[in-house]
Design a protein around this nucleic acid. Structure first.
Length: 514
RNA sequence: GGUUUCGUGGCCGAGUGGCUAGGCAGCGGUCUGCAAAACCGUCCACAGCGGUUCGACUCCGCUCGAAACCUCCA
Protein backbone atom coordinates (compact mmCIF):
# COMPACT_ATOMS: atom_id res chain seq x y z
CA UNK A 1 0.00 0.00 0.00
CA UNK A 2 1.28 3.43 -0.89
CA UNK A 3 1.58 6.39 1.34
CA UNK A 4 -1.04 8.40 -0.52
CA UNK A 5 -1.46 12.01 0.48
CA UNK A 6 -4.79 13.76 0.11
CA UNK A 7 -5.03 17.51 0.48
CA UNK A 8 -8.03 19.81 0.56
CA UNK A 9 -8.04 22.07 -2.47
CA UNK A 10 -9.95 25.29 -1.85
CA UNK A 11 -10.54 25.61 -5.57
CA UNK A 12 -12.61 22.41 -5.73
CA UNK A 13 -13.52 22.30 -2.01
CA UNK A 14 -12.60 18.65 -2.06
CA UNK A 15 -9.80 16.49 -0.79
CA UNK A 16 -7.67 15.59 -3.76
CA UNK A 17 -4.89 13.10 -4.26
CA UNK A 18 -1.65 15.08 -4.14
CA UNK A 19 0.17 14.46 -7.39
CA UNK A 20 3.03 16.88 -7.94
CA UNK A 21 3.52 18.28 -11.39
CA UNK A 22 7.17 17.22 -11.59
CA UNK A 23 7.85 14.50 -9.05
CA UNK A 24 9.91 14.12 -6.98
CA UNK A 25 9.92 17.90 -6.89
CA UNK A 26 7.21 19.85 -5.13
CA UNK A 27 6.79 23.61 -5.15
CA UNK A 28 4.94 25.56 -2.51
CA UNK A 29 4.30 29.29 -2.22
CA UNK A 30 2.84 30.82 0.94
CA UNK A 31 1.85 34.43 1.55
CA UNK A 32 4.14 35.75 4.23
CA UNK A 33 3.95 38.75 6.52
CA UNK A 34 3.72 42.42 5.78
CA UNK A 35 6.54 43.63 7.97
CA UNK A 36 5.21 46.72 9.62
CA UNK A 37 4.42 45.37 13.10
CA UNK A 38 5.46 42.87 15.70
CA UNK A 39 4.71 39.23 14.91
CA UNK A 40 1.53 38.01 16.57
CA UNK A 41 -0.66 34.94 16.74
CA UNK A 42 -2.13 35.67 13.34
CA UNK A 43 1.34 35.21 11.88
CA UNK A 44 1.98 32.01 13.79
CA UNK A 45 -0.95 30.03 12.43
CA UNK A 46 -0.08 30.01 8.71
CA UNK A 47 3.62 29.73 9.51
CA UNK A 48 3.04 26.62 11.61
CA UNK A 49 0.42 25.18 9.27
CA UNK A 50 2.62 25.34 6.21
CA UNK A 51 5.66 24.31 8.22
CA UNK A 52 3.74 21.12 8.91
CA UNK A 53 3.02 20.72 5.20
CA UNK A 54 6.67 21.47 4.36
CA UNK A 55 7.96 18.98 6.91
CA UNK A 56 5.59 16.22 5.84
CA UNK A 57 6.36 16.63 2.14
CA UNK A 58 10.05 16.45 3.00
CA UNK A 59 9.44 13.38 5.10
CA UNK A 60 7.66 11.69 2.23
CA UNK A 61 10.78 12.23 0.18
CA UNK A 62 9.74 15.10 -2.04
CA UNK A 63 12.35 17.63 -2.96
CA UNK A 64 10.45 20.67 -1.84
CA UNK A 65 11.07 24.26 -2.78
CA UNK A 66 9.16 26.34 -0.29
CA UNK A 67 8.84 30.04 -1.08
CA UNK A 68 7.41 32.49 1.43
CA UNK A 69 7.50 36.17 0.63
CA UNK A 70 8.22 39.17 2.78
CA UNK A 71 5.95 42.05 1.88
CA UNK A 72 8.01 45.14 2.47
CA UNK A 73 6.36 47.35 -0.11
CA UNK A 74 3.37 47.57 2.13
CA UNK A 75 -0.30 47.12 1.92
CA UNK A 76 -2.30 50.17 2.65
CA UNK A 77 -3.43 50.98 6.14
CA UNK A 78 -6.87 49.52 6.62
CA UNK A 79 -8.15 51.86 9.30
CA UNK A 80 -6.55 55.02 7.98
CA UNK A 81 -8.33 55.64 4.75
CA UNK A 82 -5.67 57.89 3.35
CA UNK A 83 -4.46 55.70 0.55
CA UNK A 84 -1.12 55.44 2.27
CA UNK A 85 1.17 52.56 2.65
CA UNK A 86 1.28 50.80 6.03
CA UNK A 87 5.03 50.80 6.10
CA UNK A 88 5.30 54.36 4.86
CA UNK A 89 2.95 55.62 7.54
CA UNK A 90 4.89 53.82 10.21
CA UNK A 91 8.12 55.21 8.84
CA UNK A 92 6.86 58.76 8.97
CA UNK A 93 5.50 58.35 12.47
CA UNK A 94 8.75 56.86 13.71
CA UNK A 95 11.01 59.16 11.63
CA UNK A 96 12.72 56.30 9.88
CA UNK A 97 13.54 55.19 6.39
CA UNK A 98 10.79 52.76 5.31
CA UNK A 99 13.34 50.02 4.77
CA UNK A 100 14.45 50.40 8.38
CA UNK A 101 10.94 49.58 9.48
CA UNK A 102 10.73 46.63 7.13
CA UNK A 103 14.14 45.32 8.15
CA UNK A 104 13.41 45.65 11.86
CA UNK A 105 10.12 43.78 11.72
CA UNK A 106 11.38 41.19 9.25
CA UNK A 107 14.16 40.39 11.69
CA UNK A 108 11.67 40.15 14.54
CA UNK A 109 9.52 37.85 12.44
CA UNK A 110 12.43 35.52 11.73
CA UNK A 111 13.44 35.35 15.39
CA UNK A 112 9.96 34.55 16.60
CA UNK A 113 9.30 32.00 13.88
CA UNK A 114 12.61 30.35 14.78
CA UNK A 115 11.50 30.12 18.38
CA UNK A 116 8.34 28.36 17.24
CA UNK A 117 10.63 25.87 15.50
CA UNK A 118 9.25 26.88 12.11
CA UNK A 119 11.73 25.80 9.47
CA UNK A 120 12.99 28.60 7.30
CA UNK A 121 11.62 28.33 3.77
CA UNK A 122 13.88 27.62 0.84
CA UNK A 123 13.50 31.17 -0.47
CA UNK A 124 12.13 34.27 1.23
CA UNK A 125 11.88 36.85 -1.52
CA UNK A 126 11.06 40.47 -0.78
CA UNK A 127 8.56 42.40 -2.82
CA UNK A 128 10.88 45.42 -2.97
CA UNK A 129 13.55 43.25 -4.58
CA UNK A 130 11.22 42.15 -7.35
CA UNK A 131 9.86 45.41 -8.71
CA UNK A 132 11.31 44.57 -12.12
CA UNK A 133 9.50 41.23 -12.25
CA UNK A 134 6.28 42.88 -11.18
CA UNK A 135 6.58 45.57 -13.83
CA UNK A 136 7.23 42.87 -16.42
CA UNK A 137 4.16 40.97 -15.41
CA UNK A 138 2.03 44.09 -15.52
CA UNK A 139 3.31 44.66 -19.08
CA UNK A 140 2.27 41.14 -20.00
CA UNK A 141 -1.20 41.75 -18.63
CA UNK A 142 -1.43 45.03 -20.56
CA UNK A 143 -0.28 43.21 -23.72
CA UNK A 144 -2.94 40.58 -23.29
CA UNK A 145 -5.53 43.32 -23.04
CA UNK A 146 -6.75 42.71 -19.54
CA UNK A 147 -5.43 45.92 -18.03
CA UNK A 148 -5.58 49.61 -18.80
CA UNK A 149 -3.57 52.65 -17.84
CA UNK A 150 -5.09 55.74 -16.34
CA UNK A 151 -3.12 58.77 -15.11
CA UNK A 152 0.03 56.77 -14.50
CA UNK A 153 -1.76 53.95 -12.72
CA UNK A 154 -2.55 50.56 -14.19
CA UNK A 155 -5.70 48.65 -13.34
CA UNK A 156 -6.76 45.09 -13.97
CA UNK A 157 -9.88 44.97 -16.12
CA UNK A 158 -12.01 42.58 -14.11
CA UNK A 159 -15.10 43.17 -16.19
CA UNK A 160 -13.38 42.20 -19.42
CA UNK A 161 -11.63 39.29 -17.76
CA UNK A 162 -14.88 37.89 -16.44
CA UNK A 163 -16.34 37.71 -19.91
CA UNK A 164 -13.92 34.91 -20.72
CA UNK A 165 -12.87 33.62 -17.35
CA UNK A 166 -14.51 33.16 -14.00
CA UNK A 167 -13.44 35.86 -11.58
CA UNK A 168 -14.62 34.56 -8.23
CA UNK A 169 -14.14 30.85 -8.78
CA UNK A 170 -11.89 30.50 -5.74
CA UNK A 171 -13.95 32.44 -3.25
CA UNK A 172 -17.35 31.56 -4.65
CA UNK A 173 -18.20 35.14 -5.43
CA UNK A 174 -20.31 36.21 -8.36
CA UNK A 175 -19.22 39.40 -10.08
CA UNK A 176 -22.78 40.54 -10.75
CA UNK A 177 -23.52 40.43 -7.03
CA UNK A 178 -20.57 42.64 -6.40
CA UNK A 179 -21.75 45.13 -8.95
CA UNK A 180 -25.26 45.25 -7.55
CA UNK A 181 -23.88 45.61 -4.06
CA UNK A 182 -21.74 48.52 -5.02
CA UNK A 183 -23.05 51.96 -4.29
CA UNK A 184 -21.43 55.28 -5.20
CA UNK A 185 -18.21 55.40 -7.12
CA UNK A 186 -16.52 58.11 -5.11
CA UNK A 187 -12.75 58.01 -4.88
CA UNK A 188 -12.35 55.46 -7.63
CA UNK A 189 -12.97 57.55 -10.69
CA UNK A 190 -9.83 56.20 -12.35
CA UNK A 191 -11.24 52.72 -12.37
CA UNK A 192 -13.65 51.72 -15.11
CA UNK A 193 -15.33 49.16 -12.95
CA UNK A 194 -15.58 49.01 -9.16
CA UNK A 195 -14.25 45.45 -9.07
CA UNK A 196 -11.09 46.43 -10.94
CA UNK A 197 -7.94 46.42 -8.87
CA UNK A 198 -4.65 48.24 -9.14
CA UNK A 199 -1.61 46.64 -10.69
CA UNK A 200 0.50 49.78 -10.49
CA UNK A 201 -0.31 52.91 -8.56
CA UNK A 202 1.14 56.33 -9.23
CA UNK A 203 2.64 57.73 -6.05
CA UNK A 204 1.32 60.93 -4.59
CA UNK A 205 4.05 63.48 -3.77
CA UNK A 206 4.05 62.57 -0.06
CA UNK A 207 4.33 58.87 -0.77
CA UNK A 208 7.87 57.96 0.21
CA UNK A 209 8.05 54.39 -1.09
CA UNK A 210 8.27 54.62 -4.86
CA UNK A 211 9.93 53.06 -7.85
CA UNK A 212 10.23 54.06 -11.49
CA UNK A 213 8.08 52.31 -14.06
CA UNK A 214 6.95 52.89 -17.65
CA UNK A 215 3.75 54.46 -16.31
CA UNK A 216 4.83 56.60 -13.36
CA UNK A 217 6.95 56.77 -10.26
CA UNK A 218 4.86 54.64 -7.98
CA UNK A 219 4.43 51.30 -6.37
CA UNK A 220 2.95 47.93 -7.30
CA UNK A 221 -0.58 46.89 -6.42
CA UNK A 222 -0.89 44.52 -3.58
CA UNK A 223 -1.65 41.30 -5.50
CA UNK A 224 1.00 41.41 -8.17
CA UNK A 225 4.01 40.66 -5.98
CA UNK A 226 2.82 37.14 -5.18
CA UNK A 227 2.06 36.34 -8.80
CA UNK A 228 5.43 37.66 -9.92
CA UNK A 229 7.53 36.01 -7.24
CA UNK A 230 5.77 32.65 -7.14
CA UNK A 231 6.11 32.10 -10.86
CA UNK A 232 9.68 33.40 -10.89
CA UNK A 233 10.86 30.81 -8.40
CA UNK A 234 8.42 27.96 -8.92
CA UNK A 235 7.59 28.21 -12.60
CA UNK A 236 4.43 29.12 -14.43
CA UNK A 237 2.59 26.13 -13.04
CA UNK A 238 3.38 24.93 -9.55
CA UNK A 239 1.91 22.63 -6.95
CA UNK A 240 0.77 24.40 -3.81
CA UNK A 241 -0.21 27.94 -2.95
CA UNK A 242 -1.08 28.56 0.67
CA UNK A 243 -2.17 31.31 2.97
CA UNK A 244 -4.78 32.36 5.47
CA UNK A 245 -8.45 32.17 4.64
CA UNK A 246 -8.65 35.93 4.98
CA UNK A 247 -6.61 36.17 1.79
CA UNK A 248 -9.06 34.16 -0.28
CA UNK A 249 -10.70 37.30 -1.55
CA UNK A 250 -9.61 39.46 -3.08
CA UNK A 251 -5.93 38.58 -2.87
CA UNK A 252 -5.80 35.02 -4.15
CA UNK A 253 -8.73 35.51 -6.46
CA UNK A 254 -6.80 38.32 -8.10
CA UNK A 255 -3.64 36.27 -8.28
CA UNK A 256 -5.49 33.68 -10.32
CA UNK A 257 -6.72 36.37 -12.68
CA UNK A 258 -3.30 37.98 -13.00
CA UNK A 259 -1.57 34.73 -13.88
CA UNK A 260 -4.30 33.73 -16.29
CA UNK A 261 -4.00 37.08 -18.04
CA UNK A 262 -0.20 37.29 -18.02
CA UNK A 263 0.75 33.67 -18.65
CA UNK A 264 -2.31 32.37 -20.44
CA UNK A 265 -3.18 29.76 -17.84
CA UNK A 266 -3.54 29.44 -14.11
CA UNK A 267 -0.39 28.89 -12.12
CA UNK A 268 -1.56 26.91 -9.09
CA UNK A 269 -2.64 23.28 -8.87
CA UNK A 270 -3.66 23.09 -5.20
CA UNK A 271 -4.85 26.01 -3.08
CA UNK A 272 -4.54 25.51 0.68
CA UNK A 273 -5.97 27.84 3.30
CA UNK A 274 -5.60 27.82 7.04
CA UNK A 275 -8.48 29.05 9.16
CA UNK A 276 -8.32 31.98 11.54
CA UNK A 277 -7.78 32.19 15.26
CA UNK A 278 -10.04 33.80 17.81
CA UNK A 279 -9.30 34.91 21.33
CA UNK A 280 -11.89 33.96 23.88
CA UNK A 281 -14.38 33.57 21.07
CA UNK A 282 -13.70 36.97 19.56
CA UNK A 283 -11.70 37.88 16.54
CA UNK A 284 -8.28 39.22 17.26
CA UNK A 285 -8.03 42.88 16.45
CA UNK A 286 -6.18 45.93 17.63
CA UNK A 287 -9.39 47.80 18.30
CA UNK A 288 -10.73 45.01 20.52
CA UNK A 289 -7.74 45.11 22.82
CA UNK A 290 -7.13 41.40 22.42
CA UNK A 291 -4.32 41.70 19.95
CA UNK A 292 -1.54 39.60 21.45
CA UNK A 293 1.97 39.56 20.06
CA UNK A 294 4.17 36.49 20.31
CA UNK A 295 6.48 38.36 22.64
CA UNK A 296 3.57 38.97 24.98
CA UNK A 297 2.69 35.29 24.85
CA UNK A 298 6.19 34.16 25.65
CA UNK A 299 6.53 36.60 28.54
CA UNK A 300 2.93 36.54 29.75
CA UNK A 301 2.85 40.32 29.70
CA UNK A 302 -0.58 40.83 28.12
CA UNK A 303 -3.44 41.55 30.49
CA UNK A 304 -5.55 38.70 29.08
CA UNK A 305 -2.86 36.16 29.88
CA UNK A 306 -2.69 34.53 33.29
CA UNK A 307 0.83 33.30 32.68
CA UNK A 308 3.56 33.04 30.07
CA UNK A 309 3.19 30.32 27.45
CA UNK A 310 6.24 28.84 25.83
CA UNK A 311 6.71 28.69 22.07
CA UNK A 312 6.26 24.94 22.06
CA UNK A 313 3.02 25.27 24.01
CA UNK A 314 1.71 27.61 21.31
CA UNK A 315 2.89 25.30 18.57
CA UNK A 316 1.42 22.22 20.20
CA UNK A 317 -1.83 24.03 20.86
CA UNK A 318 -2.15 24.99 17.21
CA UNK A 319 -1.35 21.49 16.02
CA UNK A 320 -4.02 20.05 18.30
CA UNK A 321 -6.56 21.68 16.01
CA UNK A 322 -6.89 20.91 12.34
CA UNK A 323 -5.57 23.73 10.20
CA UNK A 324 -8.92 24.33 8.48
CA UNK A 325 -10.78 24.84 11.76
CA UNK A 326 -11.01 28.08 13.63
CA UNK A 327 -9.01 27.90 16.81
CA UNK A 328 -9.94 29.66 19.98
CA UNK A 329 -7.33 30.85 22.46
CA UNK A 330 -8.09 30.92 26.16
CA UNK A 331 -5.97 30.51 29.24
CA UNK A 332 -7.78 27.32 30.14
CA UNK A 333 -7.17 25.77 26.73
CA UNK A 334 -3.52 26.82 26.69
CA UNK A 335 -2.88 25.43 30.14
CA UNK A 336 -4.42 22.14 29.07
CA UNK A 337 -2.14 22.11 26.04
CA UNK A 338 0.89 22.88 28.19
CA UNK A 339 0.16 19.86 30.39
CA UNK A 340 -0.58 17.65 27.43
CA UNK A 341 2.69 18.49 25.73
CA UNK A 342 4.57 17.91 28.96
CA UNK A 343 2.98 14.47 29.25
CA UNK A 344 3.98 13.64 25.71
CA UNK A 345 7.58 14.70 26.23
CA UNK A 346 7.75 12.93 29.59
CA UNK A 347 6.53 9.77 27.89
CA UNK A 348 9.29 10.05 25.33
CA UNK A 349 11.86 10.58 28.10
CA UNK A 350 10.59 7.44 29.82
CA UNK A 351 10.97 5.53 26.58
CA UNK A 352 14.52 6.76 26.15
CA UNK A 353 15.47 5.63 29.63
CA UNK A 354 14.21 2.12 29.09
CA UNK A 355 16.98 -0.45 28.79
CA UNK A 356 17.80 -1.33 25.24
CA UNK A 357 15.89 -4.40 24.24
CA UNK A 358 17.84 -7.66 24.14
CA UNK A 359 18.77 -8.91 20.70
CA UNK A 360 18.01 -5.48 19.45
CA UNK A 361 19.62 -4.18 16.35
CA UNK A 362 21.46 -1.75 18.58
CA UNK A 363 22.03 1.27 16.43
CA UNK A 364 21.12 -0.84 13.46
CA UNK A 365 17.85 0.81 12.62
CA UNK A 366 18.25 2.83 9.49
CA UNK A 367 18.06 6.49 10.23
CA UNK A 368 15.20 8.30 8.56
CA UNK A 369 16.15 9.66 5.18
CA UNK A 370 17.15 13.26 5.04
CA UNK A 371 15.55 15.41 2.39
CA UNK A 372 18.79 16.09 0.62
CA UNK A 373 19.73 12.44 0.37
CA UNK A 374 20.41 12.04 -3.36
CA UNK A 375 19.66 8.33 -3.24
CA UNK A 376 16.22 8.73 -1.85
CA UNK A 377 13.62 6.75 -3.73
CA UNK A 378 11.06 8.76 -5.56
CA UNK A 379 7.88 9.28 -3.60
CA UNK A 380 5.39 7.99 -2.82
CA UNK A 381 7.08 5.60 -0.47
CA UNK A 382 5.29 2.46 0.59
CA UNK A 383 3.46 2.47 3.89
CA UNK A 384 5.38 0.51 6.55
CA UNK A 385 4.16 -3.01 7.19
CA UNK A 386 4.22 -5.16 10.30
CA UNK A 387 1.56 -6.51 12.57
CA UNK A 388 0.57 -5.56 16.08
CA UNK A 389 -0.55 -2.45 17.84
CA UNK A 390 2.72 -0.51 17.50
CA UNK A 391 2.87 -0.93 13.72
CA UNK A 392 -0.84 -0.13 13.73
CA UNK A 393 -0.07 3.04 15.61
CA UNK A 394 2.52 3.99 13.03
CA UNK A 395 0.17 3.37 10.15
CA UNK A 396 -2.51 5.33 11.95
CA UNK A 397 -0.15 8.30 12.21
CA UNK A 398 0.57 8.13 8.51
CA UNK A 399 -3.05 7.84 7.50
CA UNK A 400 -3.88 10.84 9.68
CA UNK A 401 -1.19 12.94 7.99
CA UNK A 402 -2.28 11.66 4.60
CA UNK A 403 -5.81 12.80 5.33
CA UNK A 404 -5.14 16.49 4.73
CA UNK A 405 -2.52 16.84 7.45
CA UNK A 406 -4.70 15.80 10.38
CA UNK A 407 -2.26 16.61 13.15
CA UNK A 408 -4.85 16.25 15.98
CA UNK A 409 -5.23 12.57 15.12
CA UNK A 410 -1.48 12.13 15.02
CA UNK A 411 -1.29 13.63 18.48
CA UNK A 412 -4.07 11.38 19.76
CA UNK A 413 -2.08 8.41 18.48
CA UNK A 414 1.05 9.64 20.22
CA UNK A 415 -0.88 9.85 23.48
CA UNK A 416 -1.84 6.23 22.97
CA UNK A 417 1.88 5.55 22.55
CA UNK A 418 2.56 7.33 25.84
CA UNK A 419 -0.03 5.19 27.57
CA UNK A 420 1.74 2.06 26.33
CA UNK A 421 5.15 3.42 27.34
CA UNK A 422 3.96 4.22 30.85
CA UNK A 423 2.27 0.87 31.25
CA UNK A 424 5.44 -0.88 30.21
CA UNK A 425 7.47 1.30 32.57
CA UNK A 426 5.03 0.33 35.33
CA UNK A 427 5.58 -3.29 34.36
CA UNK A 428 1.89 -3.71 33.69
CA UNK A 429 2.46 -4.50 30.06
CA UNK A 430 5.33 -5.72 27.95
CA UNK A 431 6.33 -4.99 24.40
CA UNK A 432 8.82 -6.70 22.15
CA UNK A 433 12.23 -5.24 21.51
CA UNK A 434 11.27 -4.52 17.93
CA UNK A 435 8.16 -2.68 19.10
CA UNK A 436 10.19 -0.64 21.56
CA UNK A 437 12.51 0.47 18.77
CA UNK A 438 9.58 1.18 16.48
CA UNK A 439 7.86 3.21 19.17
CA UNK A 440 10.89 5.41 19.48
CA UNK A 441 11.04 5.78 15.73
CA UNK A 442 7.39 6.84 15.69
CA UNK A 443 8.05 9.56 18.23
CA UNK A 444 11.22 10.70 16.51
CA UNK A 445 9.43 10.88 13.20
CA UNK A 446 6.07 12.31 14.10
CA UNK A 447 6.53 14.26 17.31
CA UNK A 448 9.88 15.80 16.45
CA UNK A 449 10.42 15.68 12.68
CA UNK A 450 6.91 16.23 11.37
CA UNK A 451 5.02 18.05 14.12
CA UNK A 452 8.23 19.92 14.81
CA UNK A 453 7.93 19.86 18.58
CA UNK A 454 10.98 19.78 20.79
CA UNK A 455 12.24 19.84 24.32
CA UNK A 456 12.73 23.48 25.19
CA UNK A 457 15.80 23.19 27.36
CA UNK A 458 19.25 23.29 25.88
CA UNK A 459 21.30 20.11 25.90
CA UNK A 460 24.22 21.55 27.86
CA UNK A 461 22.07 22.57 30.75
CA UNK A 462 20.20 19.34 30.55
CA UNK A 463 23.32 17.28 30.92
CA UNK A 464 24.63 19.17 33.91
CA UNK A 465 21.24 19.03 35.55
CA UNK A 466 21.05 15.30 34.93
CA UNK A 467 24.36 14.72 36.69
CA UNK A 468 23.48 16.96 39.62
CA UNK A 469 20.12 15.36 40.06
CA UNK A 470 21.62 11.90 39.96
CA UNK A 471 23.89 12.91 42.85
CA UNK A 472 21.10 14.47 44.88
CA UNK A 473 18.71 11.59 44.36
CA UNK A 474 21.33 9.02 45.36
CA UNK A 475 21.85 10.89 48.65
CA UNK A 476 18.12 11.02 49.18
CA UNK A 477 17.80 7.32 48.41
CA UNK A 478 20.25 6.54 51.21
CA UNK A 479 18.19 8.56 53.66
CA UNK A 480 15.06 6.77 52.53
CA UNK A 481 16.67 3.40 53.03
CA UNK A 482 17.35 4.34 56.66
CA UNK A 483 13.80 5.73 56.88
CA UNK A 484 15.17 9.19 57.52
CA UNK A 485 12.02 10.79 56.15
CA UNK A 486 12.99 14.20 57.44
CA UNK A 487 16.03 14.43 55.20
CA UNK A 488 14.28 12.75 52.31
CA UNK A 489 11.30 15.11 52.42
CA UNK A 490 13.51 18.13 52.93
CA UNK A 491 15.35 17.32 49.72
CA UNK A 492 12.12 16.76 47.85
CA UNK A 493 10.42 19.88 49.20
CA UNK A 494 13.41 22.10 48.51
CA UNK A 495 13.67 20.78 44.98
CA UNK A 496 9.97 21.43 44.54
CA UNK A 497 10.57 25.06 45.41
CA UNK A 498 13.06 25.11 42.56
CA UNK A 499 10.31 23.71 40.34
CA UNK A 500 11.84 20.25 40.20
CA UNK A 501 9.37 17.48 40.96
CA UNK A 502 10.64 14.21 42.42
CA UNK A 503 8.64 11.11 41.68
CA UNK A 504 9.26 7.91 43.63
CA UNK A 505 8.70 4.73 41.68
CA UNK A 506 9.35 1.06 42.18
CA UNK A 507 12.75 1.24 40.54
CA UNK A 508 13.93 4.31 42.38
CA UNK A 509 13.16 7.97 41.97
CA UNK A 510 12.90 10.10 38.89
CA UNK A 511 12.44 13.80 38.42
CA UNK A 512 11.19 16.40 36.04
CA UNK A 513 11.11 20.14 35.77
CA UNK A 514 8.00 22.18 35.27
C1' G B 1 -27.14 42.49 2.67
C1' G B 2 -23.52 38.94 -0.14
C1' U B 3 -19.64 34.96 -0.17
C1' U B 4 -17.21 31.36 2.73
C1' U B 5 -16.39 28.47 7.07
C1' C B 6 -18.52 26.68 11.42
C1' G B 7 -21.87 25.41 15.92
C1' U B 8 -19.65 18.42 19.59
C1' G B 9 -19.55 16.76 26.68
C1' G B 10 -17.05 21.61 32.60
C1' C B 11 -12.86 23.59 28.87
C1' C B 12 -10.20 22.72 24.13
C1' G B 13 -10.76 19.78 20.03
C1' A B 14 -11.10 15.07 16.15
C1' G B 15 -14.31 11.87 13.51
C1' U B 16 -18.21 8.89 11.39
C1' G B 17 -24.89 6.91 8.43
C1' G B 18 -25.43 1.85 13.03
C1' C B 19 -19.15 0.30 16.34
C1' U B 20 -13.78 4.30 21.75
C1' A B 21 -11.38 10.07 19.32
C1' G B 22 -7.61 12.47 22.22
C1' G B 23 -5.98 16.18 25.88
C1' C B 24 -7.20 19.12 30.36
C1' A B 25 -10.54 19.16 34.57
C1' G B 26 -14.03 15.92 37.98
C1' C B 27 -15.15 11.20 40.53
C1' G B 28 -13.75 6.00 42.28
C1' G B 29 -9.73 2.53 42.70
C1' U B 30 -4.41 0.42 42.31
C1' C B 31 0.47 1.73 43.65
C1' U B 32 3.06 4.66 47.62
C1' G B 33 6.20 6.03 54.39
C1' C B 34 3.65 10.53 52.71
C1' A B 35 3.37 13.20 48.13
C1' A B 36 3.77 13.45 42.94
C1' A B 37 3.55 10.72 38.64
C1' A B 38 1.62 6.56 36.35
C1' C B 39 -2.09 2.76 35.46
C1' C B 40 -7.32 0.90 35.63
C1' G B 41 -12.44 2.24 35.88
C1' U B 42 -16.11 6.16 35.53
C1' C B 43 -19.43 10.73 34.68
C1' C B 44 -20.49 14.72 31.30
C1' A B 45 -21.95 15.34 23.94
C1' C B 46 -23.01 16.10 19.21
C1' A B 47 -27.33 24.34 18.77
C1' G B 48 -32.94 24.03 17.83
C1' C B 49 -37.03 22.31 14.62
C1' G B 50 -38.58 19.42 10.62
C1' G B 51 -37.41 15.75 6.64
C1' U B 52 -34.82 11.31 4.18
C1' U B 53 -33.61 6.34 6.35
C1' C B 54 -34.63 0.08 9.32
C1' G B 55 -31.36 3.60 11.91
C1' A B 56 -28.43 10.37 11.95
C1' C B 57 -24.32 13.56 15.85
C1' U B 58 -23.10 12.11 10.63
C1' C B 59 -27.34 13.41 4.55
C1' C B 60 -31.28 17.47 3.14
C1' G B 61 -34.22 21.99 4.49
C1' C B 62 -35.34 25.87 7.79
C1' U B 63 -34.35 28.70 12.31
C1' C B 64 -31.00 30.60 15.85
C1' G B 65 -25.87 31.70 16.91
C1' A B 66 -20.41 32.53 15.77
C1' A B 67 -16.07 33.80 12.68
C1' A B 68 -13.45 35.62 8.19
C1' C B 69 -13.76 38.33 3.74
C1' C B 70 -16.72 41.64 0.75
C1' U B 71 -20.56 45.55 0.58
C1' C B 72 -15.65 52.37 1.47
C1' C B 73 -10.51 51.74 -0.45
C1' A B 74 -5.26 51.19 -2.35
Amino acid sequence: MDNTLFIHNTLTRKKEHFEPINPPFAGMYVCGPTVYGDPHLGHARPAITFDLVFRYLLHLGYKVRYVRNITDVGHLVADLDEGEDKIAVKARVEQLEPMEIAQYYADRYFVYMDSLNVKRPSIEPRASGHIIEQVLMIKQILDSGYAYEENGSVYFDVEKYSKTYEYGKLSGRVLDDQISNTRALEGQEEKRHPADFALWKKAQPEHIMRWPSPWSDGFPGWHIECSAMSTKYLGNYFDIHGGGMDLLFPHHESEIAQCQAAIGHESVKYWLHNNMITIQGQKMGKSLGNFITLEEFFTGSHRLLQQAYSPMTIRFFMLQAHYRSTLDFSNEALQAAEKGLKKLLAGYATLEKMPSPPNSLAGGMPSPPTPLDPYLPSPPTPLPGGEGRIPDLQRSCYSAMNDDFNSPIVIANLFEGVRIINSVADKKETISGADQILLKEIFDTFLFDILGLKEEKSNDQREMLDNLMQLILSIRQKSRETKDWGTSDQIRDTLQKLHITVKDGKDGSSWETE
